[in-house]
Amino acid sequence: MNPDTRLKDPLSLRVTPWISFIGFFVVWQLLIDTGIVPRILLASPAEVGQLFIDKLTNPDPDGAVLLTHTMVSLLEAVLGYVLSLVIGIPLGLLMGWFVVAEGLARPPFEMIRPIPPVAWIPLAIFWFGIGLTGKVFIIWACGVVPCVINAYTGVRMTSPTLIQMARTYGASDWQIFTKICVPSALPMVFGGLQIALALAWTTLVAAELIAANEGLGYLITMGRRLLRPDMIVLGMIMVGLTGWIIGNIIDRIERRLTAGLERGGAAT
């Protein structure tokens, strides 16, 4: 669980992560059980675990089972995320190589860039209501910025030597762009994907906290309205877990796609 533990380490170093991990839950449970922290403020891990099993099948009291909430959030996130990739990455790549694309796309982009993603929420709700469209718009707006920046930077950081070599061999602008700039920008693009994902997930939760009738953020809000700390904690754990899983999947894809690049050292 901790990458820093090695086999040759003394025993005390190897057990400390486990002590800490288990101790965290034990202290948490004891704090609730002994009444130091009142039950109205925080739920114990055991209660959260019970609720997790219960919520797998029981739609009460918030109207949907856990899987539905997760799927709704995931659907919103994935739709908005894919849209932002489809638009952001080609735009950023083109901006990095073609002067016309950069000149035309940069000013509007620089206007949108400093707006924190959560600031789009009221406008999106006003335009599209609290349903799927509004959420997808918000996630698109916050995901597209890192995609463009990283794709752009990736292309700009292409080694000039490679470009000059291609020119010498008579490659056209378009060939250089597709054969050299785009592959060498890939590691940066994947960095952008990870940033965009973290942003999209955070923003989605914020959007669901403010206006929604389904989704994990809604579960957290309902927990507060019904004074059910176990529901809040369960929602938070599900949000963290889902985000972590998606991040790992992207990491895996990245490693597969850029494996050849990093071996050759062309990524730098």
Partner: peptide
């Protein structure tokens, strides 16, 4: 770490 800071808001309001 993986929990978005905003998801703490309900607990924060309770506390």
């Amino acid at each position: 770490k993986p929990m978005p800071p905003i998801s703490w808001i309900s607990l924060a309001i309770l506390w």
